[in-house]
Structures are given as structure tokens and as C-alpha cells.
Design a protein around this nucleic acid. Structure first.
Lengths: 73, 73
DNA sequence: CTGTGACTTGAAGTCCGTC
DNA sequence: AGACGGACTTCAAGTCACA
């Protein structure tokens, strides 16, 4: 699994859990909505600084967004 | 603590634990020695794809490099 | 062996709009 | 609400010489 895909999947999951649209999330996180879209689809390769911006907007730690889903869960 | 500093500190710690010089690590990870230097000092803002390259070279998961040191340890 | 400044090229990141 | 396109500016990627 590609890191970008992994990152995007985690972002989407957490964003949905918070019941936010891409636009709303982009607004609170201070990130362009088209960029959010690209990231969630694994098309973008964000920097670690941007990654933290995503994390803060989602209320989680950065490393959580790069964590591989636990198999046994 | 800035993410870049955090990332760099983790990289340096892990690299030292493996007893590698920046040059040696750069070689195994396929990253320029000066780039490694810049990252370890928190001057660079690597992308998540680069971050994974660092992780692979160090034999750890990506999220580990962005993990904040546990206070109670 | 490492730090550092400088440099070119490519991609990150933003903004516009459309479907 | 979200996918997707183009054009644009900024900055990261990657490498060098030198301390």
C-alpha cells in the first residue's frame, strides 16, 4: 500500500467520522478543498508539515494518519 | 515541537542506534548525505513518500518517525 | 564524518472554474 | 457534496563545493 493512499484513506475515514465535508474540513484546517480531494484519493504527496495540518484539523496526532490499519481489529 | 524537528530527531536517534553514519545511511536509503543532514537538523520539510524512504532505510514503520517521544518512558 | 550555502528542476500547494 | 481540469506561485527534491 502506497503511503499516499494510506494517508488519504486515513484522512477520509477520520473526516467522515467527524461528519465534515471536504469543504468544511478544508476550511477548519486551512487547506484548499481541491487539495483535500487530491490527498484523499492518493494523488498528492503532502509534506510532513502539511500532514500535521491535516492531523490538527482532524484532532489527532500526525503519526496516526500514517498508521497502517491493524489487521486483527 | 515542530514536525520537521521531531522527524529529524527520530531519524537521528534511530540511525545512531543502528550505528550508521549519515553517509552510510544515505547510501542504504538511497538519499543524498547532505539531505540526510538537513532533515536531521529540521531544516527540510520532506514529503510523506520521502518519509517512508527514511523509514525503510531505518527498518521501521513511517508513523514511528512522526511519533512524539513518550513522556513517561 | 558532518554542517552549510547555493543552485536547478520538478512537484507541492493555491485559486479559478466545470461537471 | 465531491471529482476533476488548467494555470499559477512557492517550495521541496536533489546535488555541488567548501568549511
Amino acid at each position: 500500500m502506497d503511503v499516499r493512499q494510506l494517508f488519504g484513506t486515513n484522512v477520509r475515514r477520520l473526516r467522515l467520522e467527524k461528519g465534515l465535508s471536504q469543504e468544511e474540513f478544508g476550511f477548519v484546517a486551512g487547506i484548499d478543498r481541491t487539495y483535500v480531494s487530491g490527498v484523499e484519493r492518493g494523488l498528492r504527496n503532502p509534506t510532513i508539515v502539511l500532514a500535521e495540518k491535516f492531523a490538527q484539523g482532524l484532532g489527532v496526532e500526525v503519526d496516526e494518519l500514517l498508521r497502517r490499519p491493524a489487521k486483527g481489529a
